[in-house]
């Protein structure tokens, strides 16, 4: 789109007004270099130079049966739900169904407007499966809480923690979401709403710190949804403002590949009848 003459004048004016500052270019570089040298010198005793540790390359495995696996996965999810409506859950059978989820699948997502493809691996827990890009994340299964966290954590302690935790609660999603919203009420910014994507349930989101003005303000996002057993799955995602479009988006997208695998869905499917 063309600009009006006065807008051209505005652009020129901004460039002209900042021209003097450009004289500092070499001076600024000298300061940057000095600081980097100093940081590298202090890190040299450490086994790995963290800032430039080569990134683990993406596990792009060509020749995988991506399309068929994706179809298989979708079919498995449908079967899990369908079976749960028709018959009481049989653990052995459910386990068999779990096997129908592809061990790996190609996930395409858009981050900051750019398409990204990763080969995500299946992780199974007692009542669900989820796909994780293992080049970026690892899963730590604990008692009652499974935690997904970055493989490469920033060592700089100015970065708030980044993780996603999956647990279950005996109470219904709405009750849990109201409770969590109340618990977060001391945070500068709290929002709660019913959602249909990436899961059908509730989202409670809080921004800590300055409430969204600082790069490192912590963000906590909960997804609360029916676990099919009268209770809820509670997924807690924590990251920080600057990482909202990175980790935040990845966690959000990861939930699109979350599948309940027990008799979960019985209630949900039943309600739909």
């Amino acid at each position: 789109m063309g600009r009006e003459p006065w807008e051209k004048e505005l652009k020129d004016g901004l460039e002209k007004g900042t021209e003097d500052a450009m004289k500092q270019q070499d001076e600024i570089w000298a300061s940057i270099k000095k600081r980097i040298d100093s940081e590298r010198a202090s890190q040299s005793s450490e086994p790995a130079a963290v800032p430039f540790a080569p990134r683990k390359t993406k596990a792009r495995r060509s020749g995988r049966k991506t399309a068929s696996w994706m179809v298989g996965t979708a079919a498995a999810a449908v079967i899990v739900l369908a079976l749960s409506v028709q018959t009481p859950p049989v653990q052995a059978f459910i386990d068999q169904v779990k096997e129908w989820f592809a061990p790996q699948k190609t996930v395409e997502q858009e981050l900051e407007g750019s398409p990204e493809t990763s080969v995500d691996s299946l992780h199974e827990s007692a009542d669900y499966v989820i796909y994780i890009d293992e080049s970026r994340f690892k899963m730590i299964q604990g008692e009652g809480v499974d935690r997904i966290e970055p493989v490469h954590k920033p060592e700089d302690d100015r970065y708030p923690e980044v993780y996603m935790e999956i647990s279950q609660d005996q109470e219904a999603p709405k009750v849990v979401s109201e409770r969590l919203e109340a618990e977060l009420s001391d945070q500068p910014k709290v929002e709660a709403e019913a959602i249909q994507e990436p899961v059908n349930g509730f989202e409670v989101r809080a921004v800590g710190g300055t409430g969204g003005k600082e790069w490192n303000d912590p963000i906590v996002r909960y997804y609360i949804f029916d676990n099919g057993q009268g209770g809820s799955f509670v997924v807690k995602q924590q990251y920080f403002l600057e990482a909202a479009e990175g980790y935040g988006a990845r966690f959000h997208n990861m939930m699109k590949e979350f599948h309940i695998t027990t008799n979960a869905g019985e209630k949900q499917a039943g309600e739909g009848e």
Binding site: Q24, I32, K58, L111
Partner: peptide, 30 residues
Amino acid sequence: AASAADVVQETFIRVYRNLGMYDLSRPFDP
């Protein structure tokens, strides 16, 4: 201009510190 020098310096130090974690599949400018 003096403040800008500090800001730009901090910006590039931050870029340096985080470049290892930068995802090459994404555009750098944003």
